[in-house]
Every structure is written in structure tokens, then in C-alpha cells.
Design a protein around this nucleic acid. Structure first.
Lengths: 344, 344
DNA sequence: TTGTAAGCGTTATCAC
DNA sequence: GTGATAACGCTTACAA
């Protein structure tokens, strides 16, 4: 049906060179027991005939692939695309391919994608969970089959698995402390979905920082949304000022919501940072673009991808030293004009 | 070596049910000639034993994969990640997987990745070329083998292949015309690598618009860079004003360079849009974030991904009607404050 | 409606 | 150093 040209196989090369297929196979991978001349001849002919290893056959025979499965909520989010870029670069360098699938934050999609990846007999799986996900059977199934699974960023509550993360608690604490250091006392929080570990941790870090500084927590200043975006940031901030809760500092657990907050402030004539100091989370490119520059906590997305891949390979290869069950990457406070008050 | 659990095969199911493996194979795909009860029994047991098709074996036997190869310069660029998101969503819905690789704009990487993808016997390939690429042997090789190849966005000059694009010429003409309509007469161009078709086309569109309006082209206002980014945008704009070439309009073929231009204008006290009307290209998220809002030409990245995949599948399946050799998607003028002069 | 058997291209084991 | 051969798990004529 397909008019694809038949590909050259080791049999074709063997016939032409009048040697055995097994010799060709070995020659192509520089097996030590094959004569130098044979190797040269085989490689020369392979090049001339345009021979390409049939990965499917090889994989089937070896009972393993060199494909890394990646399961993320969205490909086209800055953080995730950087994560994937890191995974891909590292994988490629190590001779692996990357197959990606996005759940679009739907549990149903995530399950279907997990099954599809599993059927492809992936070498390892790197997962960041969908917002909706609260059951993990589709993942534990894979773990139990012996396939290495690494969780990144959006990790599950229950499963004891390998993870590559940042310390969301401490990072949020640092962000909040920075606002306090700038003289803020009424600090609002724009939080994400509380059923997600990372947003829960960030909220805890915020609360802890306030307590450590003897600042009473005003629950009315804590706002959360499962869909924290620019619009929510705008709306939440307007709400705070409309209800006479006017904060003097604002920590947003996502940069994009901080942008919304700043947009509102601008429209309402609220000066940043003098009246409202703002800090975000992730250090997305927007932080450099908006005026004033948005302070944020840097998040090593690409590095996280690289690390996750390294962990996955280590886990898949019993010869290598086993990986730590949890890797924490460093974050950093990036101070820009949105939070920097003179005189502090 | 690997402590992976042995996977269940159709043989296991066949033995347990006391039927032939072929029966199991057929039952699993609802073959018409298999008894209803047999099908039910097979599926039930498959579920119970956690059977998963071994895709490698199946592919090897069928001499084809359901894997779509994607070769792009960078995964973590807004335009590309949207493109990939479109490809993935459409592919997944059609039962295909997506394997991605990034050339990082290096010719060498692109060649290596193309070979690797080819060895995986991909069903089809979707390519956006690296900046460096000027030879296309690594791609023509694949086309000649019978594998469908679809070019998107960064297409080659020479190869007669299938492509999914926007009309860069007309889109640039519309952008330039818009500035002219706003009263601009000295319009600068921030262009990309001229060896790339798309940037060449955009420059032509700009020139044509000026000519159509009887505006003389001042070559000193035309600046190009293979690495057009925020910094270049800033630098080019400063150069224009420093050299007393002060333009009253600026068309940047990439949004991010327009952002740089706006940053310079702000630092130099040049009013946008009154003294300098600015328009970009792509309608990236930054356009909404920067102040004033950046006018731009919308680029249907996700749609382009979906379309490219559809074309690829159509091309791979001789039963379907053959695709058009070139698909052009619509772009649109998105007017924001950066180019909107009152009184026009 | 089901079974038999060949073969997809590779690699590992054993023999020479 | 090299060759013969048997898998890997699946699909698909062809046979029954």
C-alpha cells in the first residue's frame, strides 16, 4: 500500500560482502572480535547503500527502547517548554529519543496517554501531573511494571516515587521575607490550586514567613484559584482594594497573575513598588518585559529537565549508582523594581 | 540485567484460553471473523492480566510506525511550542505519537537528528529548519525514501516539498501599510536572517508596501540580523536615532525585537506611538503585557501544527486525497496602542 | 470461526 | 574472527 522504498538491511550488506549477517551486525558496532578490515569494508558499504539501523527490530530483539516518555499538562507553557527543552537536549546527547504527550490538564487524557506510552515500552517516564489528577493508578501501574518513573514539578501526594523539584516551601518563604524586608506588613497571597502539592507548599512558606516575623495572618488577604492567570490576578487585586483590604505587598505564586495585579494597580493609579510591592514566582520572560520589572523567584526549568532525565537513566540502569529519591534544585531571589523600595 | 517484569504477550493469553495466538491477535482488534464470545473472553483476560500491545513487535511486523517525527530549532520558543502543541493534540487524536528533537539552530544537530528520526522509521516528518541550514541532503534523503515530509514556517529555498505556511509577504505588507495608514513616512524595518525564506519574504512585503504608497525606500532604515532578539531591537533602534535617521514608524519582523525597540524608546523619552509607531510580528503573549500594548500580526501557530499533521497523514495514506503542495493559513492585523495614532 | 506457520530485522549464543 | 541459528512478539496469508 505504501510506496515506500524498501530499506537496506544487514542481510543485503552481508550478501553483497559475502559474509554472515551476524558479522555485519557486529562490525557496525565495532565489536572487538571483528577484523579491522572487515569493519572498514562493512561500514563503507553501509554508507554507500544508505543503511540505517532498523530501530524497531533492534529494540524488539533487545527488549528495550531508547525512548523517554514525557507526560505534561501543556507543551506550550513557558515553564514546561523549557523543561522539555532540557529533557530533550540531555536525552539526545545520551542517545535517547523523547516522545511527548500533553494531558491538557485532563485526568482522562492523562490516563490515555500514560497507557499509550506504556504500550510503546518506553525506557523511562517523566511526569508532571494534570490539575485534575487525584488518582494515580495509571502511574503506579507503570512503576510496578519496572519502568522508571520520575515526577517533576507537579508531583503526587501519595506515591513514594522519585522526584525532581524545587523547595517550594522555602522559595515561597524567601519571597515573602523579601517583601517583609522591604517594609511590607499587609502582604497578600495569590495562590494556585490547593489540591496540588506545589501550591500548598508555597502557601505554607508564605504563612511561615509571616509568623516568623510576628505578623498576624489575615485570611482575607489569601486568595487562591485553580486557574490562576492574568485575569484572576487582576480580579483578585481589584477585590482587595475594593473591599478596603488594601495590601502593601503582594506575593503571587505565578508570574502571570502578578502581571494581572500590576495591570490593575496601573489602572487604579496605585504606585508600584511604593504603595504595593510585588513579587512573582518562576522568573518567566515577562518579568523583564513589564514595567516596572517584576521581581520573582527563579525556577531552573531547563536544568530540572536535564536532571530529571539523568535520574531516569540512572534509575533504568542498575549498573549506575541509584539516584536519590528526591532531588531539589536551587531557586533564587531575582529583585527588580516591582519590589525594591528605596530606603530599605 | 533489567529487573523489569516480563510483559504479558498474546501467547500467554492464548495458552491460558486454549486458543491460537492469532485468534487472540484478531480478537483484540475486533476482527469480524471472530466469535463474539471469544472476543469478550480474550478482552476480559487481557484486561485482567494487564496486557499491552507490544508496539515494537507490531510495528516491525507491519513495517510501519505510528510515530510522527518533529524537527524544530527550539522547543522553548513561544511560536514553536504552540506549533508542537497543535501537532501533538492532532496526532494523539488520530492515534499517533510525536517524537520531537531540536536542532538548536545548528546544522550539525539537525543532520544528526534527521538521521536518528529516520532510523526510527517515523511515519512522517514535520520540519522547521535551523537558521544555519543551507544544504538539504539530510532532508531529501528522507523524502526519497518515501517518508512524507512537511515543511512548516522555516522552509527551504530549493526543495519542492509540501509546506504549511503563512503568506509572509502579504502579512508584512499589511503590517507596513498599517503604519503608513497611521501617517508614518519614515518606516524602519527590523529584519531577520536574509538567507531564510520567511525573513526575505517579510522584507519584500515591507518594500512593496512602501513602493505602492510612493514612499522612497531608505536603505539605512533597513536593519537585519540573524539573531534578531530583544537586545538587537534595542541596539538597532538606538543606532537609528543616534545617526539622525529617526524613523516615525517601525516594523519588526519579530515581536521580541519590537519589545527591545520600545524599551529603547522609553529610555530615550521617545513617545510611542506619537513619535514612533511600532508593530511586531507573531502576536506573542508579550504584546499584551508590555505598555503600551504592542500591535502585531497574528500567527496561527497551533493551527499550523494541526494542519501540518493532517497534511502529513494525508500524504502517508494513499487512500486519502493527496494534499495540496502548499497550505497557506490566514494571519490578522492586531492593533494595539503602540501603533494607534489618534486622528487617523 | 479458528489454527498453522512464516517472517519482519536485529542480536545473542554457541559452534567452528 | 566468523558463521549458523534461534529467538523477540506480532500480523497475516493460507489452510482447515
Amino acid at each position: 500500500m505504501n510506496k515506500r522504498k524498501k530499506q537496506v538491511t544487514i542481510y543485503d550488506l552481508a550478501t553483497e560482502l559475502k559474509v554472515a549477517p551476524s558479522t555485519v551486525s557486529r562490525a557496525l558496532k565495532d565489536h572487538s572480535s571483528i577484523g579491522k578490515e572487515t569493519i572498514a569494508a562493512v561500514k563503507e558499504l553501509a554508507r554507500k547503500r544508505g543503511y540505517r539501523t532498523n530501530t524497531m527490530a533492534s529494540n524488539l530483539r533487545k527488549q528495550q527502547t531508547t525512548t523517554i516518555g514525557v507526560l505534561v499538562p501543556w507543551i506550550n507553557h513557558p515553564f514546561i517548554s523549557n523543561l522539555i527543552a532540557g529533557i530533550e537536549a540531555e536525552a539526545r546527547a545520551a542517545g535517547y529519543e523523547v516522545i511527548i504527550s500533553q494531558s491538557q490538564d485532563s485526568y482522562e487524557n492523562e490516563v490515555a496517554n500514560a497507557r499509550a506510552l506504556f504500550s510503546s515500552r518506553i525506557h523511562a517516564l517523566i511526569v508532571s501531573l494534570a490539575m485534575e489528577t487525584t488518582h494515580y493508578d495509571h502511574i503506579t501501574e507503570i512503576i510496578q511494571s519496572g519502568t522508571p518513573v520520575i515526577f517533576v514539578d507537579r508531583i503526587p501526594w501519595e506515591i513514594e516515587g522519585y522526584r525532581v523539584m524545587i523547595d517550594n516551601f522555602s522559595t515561597a518563604r524567601v519571597a515573602t521575607q523579601h517583601l517583609i524586608d522591604q517594609g511590607c506588613r499587609r502582604i497578600a497571597l495569590l495562590g494556585g490550586a490547593r489540591n496540588q502539592v506545589i501550591y500548598h507548599e508555597r502557601e505554607s512558606g508564605y504563612r511561615t514567613a509571616l509568623q516568623e516575623n510576628g505578623i498576624e495572618i489575615d485570611e482575607r488577604l489569601i486568595l487562591a484559584s485553580g486557574q490562576l492567570g492574568q485575569e484572576e490576578g487582576y480580579r483578585f487585586t481589584r477585590h482587595l482594594f475594593d473591599e478596603n483590604l488594601a495590601p502593601d505587598g503582594l506575593f503571587s505564586t505565578m508570574d502571570i497573575a502578578a502581571v494581572g495585579a500590576m495591570k490593575y494597580a496601573r489602572s487604579a493609579g496605585i504606585c508600584i513598588p511604593e504603595q504595593l510591592a510585588v513579587i512573582g514566582f518562576n522568573d518567566d520572560p515577562v518579568c523583564e518585559i513589564i514595567e516596572p520589572g517584576l521581581s520573582s523567584m527563579s525556577h531552573p526549568a531547563t536544568e530540572m529537565g536535564r536532571k530529571a532525565l539523568q535520574q531516569a537513566l540512572r534509575l533504568a540502569n542498575p549498573k549506575k549508582p541509584p539516584p536519590a529519591s528526591e532531588v531539589n534544585l536551587a531557586t533564587g531571589l531575582v529583585i527588580r523594581a516591582s519590589s525594591l523600595r528605596t530606603g530599605h
